[in-house]
Design a binder for these strands. Structure first.
Lengths: 341, 341
DNA sequence: AGGTTTCTTGTAAGCGCTTACAACCGCGTT
DNA sequence: AACGCGGTTGTAAGCGCTTACAAGAAACCT
């Protein structure tokens, strides 16, 4: 027992069990070629002394930490919570832990957080989206750190990624509304700076409306921060327009909830007077009244696949550069035929 | 440059700057007694080489890691997401990082996760609630690790804690309903095993109803897992009873959302035919229709205070054993007079 | 029985950093 | 001119673990 720190060290365990430190280490690491008898003696000693190995010393000596780092914009949004949850669960199967850092959509913060994770010596890194400071790529490359970005997908991505096309479902959502006869569409978007997903979704909305000959004028594109209250405020702004929209496409479900609830308050009937769509398919979406038409983002599946793929990369396996997942529309009752003027 | 790992080491920086490793370390740690000139030279060398110090080696040598660990049941519930967010923001002010681990309300997992955090060498630990395996306390004590539990509060707590009384607001919620004339109350609770908060809330509901002479029969206490769908299912169960309740007290907002949405679907009008209450005051609560009567849990404030208090403890300062916060009722329109039979 | 081979265990050299201690420098004192 | 002093820098000994290598024991063979 180390007198000053009162900590039990591996050396103490070795002494207690009457073996060498190497043997204790081998038992700890489930190394092959350890006799049953020795293992039992060491394990008993560990139990008796309540020994807990020092992860830092371990990481330093073995050059792996047994953890990967995830950089997520925020944990406020349950869709990321779900992904992280699934990622962590799956990593457990691989005896790997997860260090989470958030950056609130501030790319400078993201870079800073990455530096911290790298200092920690994480064995791999998960990023969201492909908007990052250039230094992010440089650092990752210089350290030869396995990494993956997710939540987005494009042809021939610069980095390995696991995700879905954000623009296509947005386009299809808009097309769905156009088919229903809507001509005055509006968009409530999350801030697009440093957020490629929000940008892609907006772009999808734009493409579809322009192709149909009824493009979105600037006043019918409102950008707001994340939050129900923000969605509600966006509703007010849009409905106060000279020619208010008959359908509102929202960049995520939470904004859509805000829009729908504000509509309800104002006595605007969804979908008879106003159609609303979301993006994410949070568990609430199907329970709204009316149930929200949205895009089912495969958050759980992303978490699972990212775990498997990153571990594989860390183990030096070759993995596909892109794993494209499906993000199907969930057509529900918040969208309906355009009202007759 | 280390040939094998391709990593820049502190030693490389020292060589590049033409100084000793100790000097580089001093610059890195902003130690006193470093001349301006030396500092500039070292910083230039660091910049030039893109040097990133190894956190593990640093932690090992200095015996502090600059991070605390938080054990939370789940990140699925946005109320914990909010608390963690606020905790992390505040820790940044103290130059301290946050390691998060989740255990899905499984106390054995919690203990396991704590071991992992301790192995990582965290400088302090945050726990939720006071239901834990005994080994949690033993381990924390043995390592003399500063720690704090939060989200609960009782007189003379065994451990230092920052939180609120879970039973009192529950009692007041029930009393509110009783005053409105309700006599057949029901409860939708989260599983109480290993969850003292859920237990305290249920107990609060019980106390108030018993004091008023209309105790809760077992069939009017439904226990379900976390989730909107689960709340909706609980609604079905309760409304299928011989004598369905006129008011439903939910253990958290998400369950209440489920109940309200199921009611809406079934054409049961809230609050005219049924009163519903939640607990948490998630941002959605005030936007439900009708807005949900609930308890405002001071999640942000808890995060902030936990950060300050834990850092203070790590620095050896003496802190109050208990910080009791207020969790006021948010009386809104989901509760109303009992219907006349 | 002696020589291999295979498995188990021990010895000791790091992993990349911090920090106690010593050495050194230039200055003001006596 | 000798001395002491405070401030700056270097030297080197760890921090607690892993692991290459070597040595010893046991099992196999001819």
């Amino acid at each position: 027992m180390n007198k000053e720190t009162q900590r039990t060290l591996l050396e103490d365990v070795a002494r207690e069990a009457g073996v060498s430190t190497a043997s204790v280490s081998r038992v700890l690491n489930r190394a092959p070629h350890v006799s049953e008898r020795l293992r039992e003696r060491v394990e008993a000693a560990i139990e008796r002394l309540g020994y807990v190995p020092d992860g830092n010393a371990r990481a330093l000596a073995s050059r792996r930490i047994g953890a990967i780092g995830a950089l997520v914009p925020t944990l406020d949004n349950p869709i990321f919570g779900a992904m992280i949850d699934s990622l962590e669960q799956r990593l457990k199967h691989h005896d790997c832990r997860l260090l989470i850092a958030t950056y609130r959509y501030d790319l400078d913060d993201e870079l800073q957080a990455l530096r911290t994770l790298v200092q920690q010596g994480v064995d791999g890194v998960v990023l969201i989206g492909h908007d990052h400071r250039p230094a992010v790529g440089t650092l990752l490359a210089r350290r030869r750190l396995p990494f993956l970005s997710c939540w987005h997908a494009e042809d021939d991505p610069a980095w390995p990624c696991i995700g879905f096309d954000n623009a296509a479902p947005a386009r299809r959502l808009a097309e769905h509304l156009l088919r229903l006869g809507h001509r005055r569409l509006a968009v409530v978007s999350a801030p697009t700076e440093g957020n490629d997903r929000a940008r892609a979704r907006l772009e999808g909305f734009r493409q579809a409306t322009e192709a149909a000959g009824c493009p979105l004028p600037p006043e019918r594109i409102v950008t707001v921060e994340y939050g129900i209250a923000e969605g509600a405020r966006a509703f007010e702004t849009l409905m106060g327009l000279e020619a208010p929209p008959t359908a509102i496409l929202c960049g995520n479900d939470t904004l859509a909830f805000g829009v729908m609830l504000a509509a309800q308050r104002k006595g605007v009937c969804v979908p008879d007077q106003l159609s609303v769509t979301g993006f994410d398919d949070l568990s609430q979406a199907r329970f709204m009244s009316p149930p929200l038409t949205t895009v089912a983002v495969p958050a759980i599946e992303i978490g699972r696949r990212v775990a498997d793929a990153l571990i594989a990369r860390i183990d030096g396996k070759i993995m596909p550069h892109l794993q494209l997942l499906d993000a199907p529309l969930a057509l529900r009752e918040s969208t309906g035929p355009a009202p007759i003027d």
